[in-house]
Simulated assay, not measured.
Amino acid sequence: MCRPDHFTVSYRINPWMRPDQPTDNALALRQWSNLHAAYRDLGFDVRLIDPLPGLPDMVYAANGGTVVDGIALTARFRYAERAAEGPAYAAWFRAAGLAVHEADAVNEGEGDLLLVGDTIYAGSGFRTDPAAHAEAARVLGREVVGLRLVDPRYYHLDTAFAVLDPAGGPGSVAYLPAAFDDASQEELRFRFPDAVIVSEEDAAVLGLNCFSDGHTVVHAPQAEKFAADLAERGFGTVGVDTGELRRGGGGIKCCTLELREAP
Results as ranks from 00 to 15, higher is better:
38 A>R: 07
38 A>V: 07
39 Y>F: 13
39 Y>S: 00
39 Y>G: 11
40 R>F: 01
40 R>H: 09
41 D>W: 08
41 D>H: 13
41 D>V: 12
41 D>A: 13
41 D>C: 08
42 L>E: 11
42 L>C: 04
43 G>Q: 02
44 F>S: 06
45 D>E: 11
45 D>I: 12
45 D>H: 14
46 V>H: 06
46 V>I: 14
47 R>N: 09
47 R>L: 12
47 R>Y: 06
47 R>E: 14
48 L>F: 13
49 I>Q: 12
49 I>R: 14
49 I>M: 15
49 I>W: 08
49 I>D: 10
51 P>F: 09
51 P>V: 11
52 L>R: 15
52 L>P: 00
53 P>R: 13
53 P>Y: 14
53 P>K: 15
54 G>L: 09
54 G>M: 08
54 G>V: 14
54 G>T: 10
55 L>I: 09
55 L>Q: 11
55 L>F: 02
56 P>M: 12
56 P>L: 09
56 P>T: 14
56 P>W: 11
56 P>R: 15
56 P>E: 15
56 P>D: 08
57 D>P: 01
57 D>W: 06
57 D>H: 04
58 M>Y: 04
58 M>I: 15
58 M>F: 04
58 M>A: 13
58 M>V: 14
58 M>G: 04
59 V>Q: 06
59 V>R: 04
59 V>F: 04
59 V>A: 06
59 V>Y: 01
59 V>N: 03
60 Y>F: 15
60 Y>S: 15
60 Y>A: 13
61 A>T: 15
61 A>Y: 01
62 A>C: 06
62 A>L: 04
62 A>P: 03
62 A>G: 03
62 A>M: 02
63 N>H: 10
63 N>L: 07
63 N>R: 08
63 N>I: 04
63 N>D: 11
64 G>Q: 05
64 G>Y: 03
65 G>A: 04
65 G>C: 13
65 G>T: 06
66 T>C: 09
67 V>I: 15
67 V>T: 09
68 V>W: 05
68 V>G: 04
68 V>L: 11
68 V>H: 07
68 V>E: 05
69 D>T: 02
69 D>C: 04
69 D>V: 02
70 G>E: 05
70 G>R: 06
70 G>S: 06
70 G>V: 01
71 I>G: 06
71 I>A: 04
72 A>T: 00
72 A>Y: 01
72 A>W: 00
72 A>L: 00
73 L>R: 01
73 L>E: 10
73 L>K: 12
73 L>V: 05
73 L>N: 08
74 T>M: 08
74 T>P: 12
74 T>S: 10
74 T>E: 06
75 A>Y: 03
76 R>L: 12
76 R>N: 06
76 R>C: 08
77 F>Q: 13
77 F>W: 03
77 F>G: 10
78 R>G: 14
78 R>M: 05
78 R>V: 03
79 Y>F: 14
79 Y>D: 14
79 Y>C: 13
79 Y>K: 14
79 Y>N: 13
79 Y>A: 15
80 A>P: 00
80 A>Y: 03
80 A>H: 11
81 E>H: 12
82 R>E: 05
82 R>Y: 02
82 R>C: 02
82 R>W: 09
82 R>I: 01
82 R>T: 07
82 R>P: 01
83 A>N: 09
83 A>C: 08
83 A>H: 11
83 A>T: 14
83 A>M: 08
84 A>F: 09
85 E>P: 01
85 E>D: 05
85 E>W: 05
85 E>T: 09
85 E>V: 05
86 G>Y: 02
86 G>H: 04
86 G>M: 02
